[in-house]
């Protein structure tokens, strides 16, 4: 199976992209990549100058079922838009292929970046020595994402537009509709959370920015010097209130078991928010942030429900979506209960 995959990728890079004398010498499927099968491919090829060069690529192939429908076009557009933005490292996009005939499913290829995305790894040497720096960098980069004007990057042609006044309701409607469409059964707690969010809207967004949509500890690549080599997985990106990303990044879900009281394994909550505020130039209104925190759990339920629904409807044998949605829904609702009790 791996040999066929290697041959198909070599054929694609040579035939479709015109790369010369491509020879893949290693292909490994990576852990993670819940929404798509992710492969790291190491190859040798001839450069334009006729020299042999080594390249490492990431090939992400759409799965039969997914937690979300594929957002490859969005992901590619965002990576291209942020490629020239200082302080927001993203992978170089090499191609986005809709035609399933090459690898059996649509896929995208990016340059591989160095670093690790393994969440427990950053709690141990060599990363533990620079853990606070990693945490701050994580939130500073997110702050810088919010500074990019989506119109300047022509992103309004890629994702739906919104406004400061409607950013919250547009997103809430999106996930409410998702939950109706992919229902796994009635859920009184989630429905109560949605009604609470509607009755108690947040203040208007301070600006409409790019929202990564899944910005968290496990979606960045870390280097031992404490810097971040890349922000990955932009497929859920959209335009909205930058507090949406901040609340998502602060969620307890992403905290390692060994450091549940710390954001990103090393930071106090206030330190993380402060780093984001300094980089974004915005103040994170605590009440608004709590609204987006509760929203984040509704969104999580939407993601896990979609995965569970797709697992059932696609006759999938990949248990990832079933197990995650089965187990995670109650955890998300327990967080909703706590937040709604705090907010009352």
């Amino acid at each position: 199976m791996i040999q066929k995959f290697i041959q198909d990728v070599e054929s694609y890079l040579s035939g479709r992209l015109g790369w010369r004398q491509v020879k893949i010498h290693d292909a490994r499927q990576l852990a993670g990549g819940i929404s798509r099968a992710t492969w790291k491919v190491s190859l040798e090829m001839l450069s334009d100058g006729g020299r042999k060069v080594e390249r490492d690529l990431i090939v992400r192939v759409d799965p039969e079922a997914s937690l979300l429908s594929s957002g490859r076009k969005i992901e590619c557009a965002m990576c291209r838009a942020f490629a020239e933005v200082p302080g927001v490292p993203v992978p170089e996009v090499i191609c986005n292929e809709d035609d399933p005939s090459f690898l059996g499913a649509p896929f995208m290829v990016t340059a591989a970046l160095p670093g690790v995305a393994d969440i427990p790894a950053i709690l141990f040497p060599p990363f533990s020595a620079v853990g606070s720096g990693i945490g701050r960098a994580l939130f500073e980069i997110l702050g810088r994402v919010s500074l990019v004007d989506p119109r300047e990057k022509n992103l309004e042609s890629v994702v739906p537009t919104t406004s400061c006044a409607t950013a919250w309701s547009d997103e809430l409607k999106r996930w409410e509709t998702t939950l109706q469409r992919y229902s796994l059964g009635p859920s009184p707690i989630t429905q109560a959370a949605i009604r609470y969010l509607k009755r108690n809207p947040p203040p208007p967004a301070r600006r409409v920015s790019v929202v990564h949509g899944d910005y968290r500890l496990g979606n960045c690549l870390y280097l031992p010097d404490g810097s971040i080599a890349g922000v990955l997985d932009w497929e859920m990106a959209h335009l909205g209130d930058p507090l949406e990303d901040l609340a998502w990044a602060l969620m307890r879900d992403w905290r390692p078991s060994a450091a549940l009281d710390k954001v990103a394994g090393h930071l106090e909550y206030g330190e993380a928010v402060g780093a984001w505020e300094a980089a974004s130039g915005l103040r994170a209104d605590p009440a608004a942030l709590k609204w987006w925190a509760l929203f984040s759990h509704v969104k999580s339920i939407g993601i896990f429900t979609t995965g569970g629904y797709n697992f059932l409807s696609a006759d999938s044998t990949d248990l990832t979506y079933a197990v995650i949605s089965w187990a995670a829904l109650h955890a998300q609702e327990s967080y909703m209960i706590e937040l709604m009790e705090e907010l009352r």
Binding site: I189, P256, H330, A331, I337
Partner: peptide
Amino acid sequence: WAFLTEANRRRVIDVRPW
């Protein structure tokens, strides 16, 4: 609400793999 909270607590499980 107390019932819903109790029913949730009976089912919840920590799912973090890290």
